[in-house]
């Protein structure tokens, strides 16, 4: 572990936490454009966070310490997850500590905590949201893991750095298994980040809401941290997708000269991914909550199919 590696890691930690709301703003802005609206501007999420940090927090009488403590855990988990994905350079000092299975475990930890916090006040919406979140989660988590397993089986490693290096070095070969995995991954991304068609991030008070139902009781700084964590989660998922399916342009370990180029490549890819996400959300309609298990089941089966194709076909 050398000093430049640590610096790079710190740089990435700072970068993700600052850039995350920008990606959210960009997606929302693209959505607005696609719907022929002017849109709130891509800096809106920052202003929202700023606004929330100004307000007085209101806490329900029934809240337990778990309720107050949860936003910090959620934020720390998502921040960690986003900092671990090799987005600009591989072989960061923290990358051996966490492989893809642990990454999924971190997301699961955050999900369990947010569901528990939602049940803490004991309101009807809170428990309902918690139940739905776990329902989406118990199918999304294995699907995500299967996607990672496909990539891991191709590169014979579960370490994200090795996966990215292996896939980046290969010439452009179309892995049929990765094609299945990519579709499954997009479905998981939509579900995990509370996007249409599974959930709608821009409405409140909808009977089919999932994520919003869980955080109804939060306000001010707690809500700001949760919103920020959601933005970090979206960034983490986008960068995971980029790292596994479009790894070209990333800087190898210790190659400082390649980093500016890697940064430019990353921002271009993120912009494209955000626009694509907005397009997907615009052309699809939100589905009934009872259809969500089918949607997630499809994602899971596609991911398993991808892994099977790899094992049978060898690529």
């Amino acid at each position: 572990m050398n000093i430049s590696g640590i610096l790079l890691q710190l740089f990435q930690n700072t970068l993700v936490v600052l850039v995350a709301p920008l990606l959210l703003g960009w997606v929302n802005q693209c959505r607005a454009w696609l719907q022929n609206r002017t849109g709130p501007g891509i800096l809106r999420p920052y202003l929202n966070l700023f606004k929330l940090f100004q307000k007085d927090a209101v806490l329900a009488h029934n809240a337990s310490p778990l309720f107050r403590f949860h936003p910090y855990i959620l934020f720390a988990c998502m921040w960690l997850a986003a900092s671990l994905v090799p987005v600009i350079a591989t072989d960061l000092p923290l990358s051996p500590a966490v492989d893809v299975i642990v990454l999924v475990g971190i997301f699961a930890l955050a999900r369990v905590f947010i569901s528990l916090a939602a049940m803490d006040i004991g309101t009807s919406f809170g428990t309902l949201g918690a139940r739905r979140e776990m329902l989406v989660g118990f199918l999304a988590e294995p699907a995500l893991l299967m996607v990672f397993f496909t990539a891991a089986a191709i590169s014979h490693s579960t370490s994200l750095s090795t996966i990215v290096e292996t896939l980046a070095h290969k010439q452009f070969v179309l892995h049929p298994s990765l094609a299945f995995a990519a579709i499954a991954f997009i479905m998981v991304l939509l579900a995990e980040n509370a996007r249409i068609p599974v959930d709608n991030p821009s409405t409140h008070l909808e009977l089919t809401m999932i994520h919003e139902a869980m955080i109804l009781e939060y306000s001010a700084r707690h809500l700001a941290l949760i919103e920020w964590a959601s933005a970090l989660k979206l960034l983490a998922f986008s960068t995971i997708g980029i790292a596994v399916f479009l790894p070209w342009g990333i800087a190898e370990a210790g190659n400082w000269g390649a980093i500016p180029l890697a940064l430019v490549a990353l921002f271009l890819k993120l912009a494209a991914a955000g626009a694509g996400l907005a397009l997907l959300e615009t052309v699809s309609a939100k589905m009934r909550i009872f259809r969500v298990p089918e949607f997630m089941g499809t994602a899971f089966l596609l991911a398993v199919l991808g892994l099977l194709v790899h094992f049978l076909h060898g690529s």
Partner: peptide, 13 residues
């Protein structure tokens, strides 16, 4: 953060 905190009944929409 200024740290002001109020306690109230649960909102629940």
């Amino acid at each position: 953060y200024h740290g002001r905190l109020r306690h109230g009944p649960a909102w629940d929409c």
